[in-house]
Amino acid sequence: MTYHLTVNGEPVELAVPGMRRLLDALREDLGLTGTKEGCGEGECGACSVLVDGAVVDSCLVPVCQVDGSTVRTVESLVGPADGRLSPLQEAFLDAGGAQCGICTPGMLMAARAFLDGGGEPTDEAIREAIAGNLCRCTGYTKIIEAIALAAKRER
């Protein structure tokens, strides 16, 4: 069966088994290896992507479930024309929000969804927004600072 998705703004046809994990389709069929696998059971959030604007763990989502959906991965965050870092990515770089980097793509997508949601970027709200994304390096401090900084700059 063939599934039709929009991935990072491009229409994509996937002729794969319906139960193939979205994570594998992205990484292996589409070569989008920015999305990472940390646990394969929806605990760590390293594989977070946006499906129709909502954050999902792509390791738990079968391709058949996203037929017709719009998927965004970390690769979509840079400027489409010039490939420059987005304000969110710049903020992570400035504040030190990325250390080993393996949680970073998922963290960025959770942050993107939060910022797009337009909520007040309080410390508590940011913590809640990234509660499904584990980071073992930063103690979250500089990730939270980075998201708050991005909110300020994007305003």
């Binding site: 970390v74 690769e75 870092l85 992570f92 770089l93 030190g96 990325a98 980097g101 960025l108």
Partner: peptide
Amino acid sequence: RRREGPEKLTGAAKY
């Protein structure tokens, strides 16, 4: 800034 930061932030870094 972190030297390999941009690659980590764009998904280009290769693990």
